[in-house]
């Protein structure tokens, strides 16, 4: 799985990021790079079976505390 994720990301980066780099769209490249790193981190952790805390949980507890349920 891990190998697969890395392989896929290499592929995605080659096809998705490289054109931006070549076209010298630095802003696009930067934002895309950041997003890629983010998703790669998540995908990598998932493939390692690491439990990632859900971003929904804080929302849930916040709303419960507001509503006072």
């Amino acid at each position: 799985m891990v190998v697969l994720v890395i392989f896929s990301y290499a592929f995605i980066i080659y096809l998705d990021l490289m054109p931006l780099y070549r076209k010298k769209l630095w802003r696009d490249f930067g934002v895309n790079m950041a997003l890629t790193l983010l998703t790669f981190a998540i995908a990598f952790l998932i493939s390692l079976d690491v439990a990632i805390p859900s971003p929904v949980n804080p929302i849930k507890s916040l709303i419960i505390s507001i509503l006072g349920k």
Binding site: L4, S8, F11, I12, L15, D16
Partner: peptide, 21 residues
């Protein structure tokens, strides 16, 4: 053209996943 190659790549990735799994 660009988007076609991107799409092809995603298909390839998906196909890979499947064959391996």
């Amino acid at each position: 053209m660009k988007s076609t190659s991107k799409i092809l790549s995603v298909i390839l990735i998906l196909a890979n996943t499947l064959f391996l799994a």
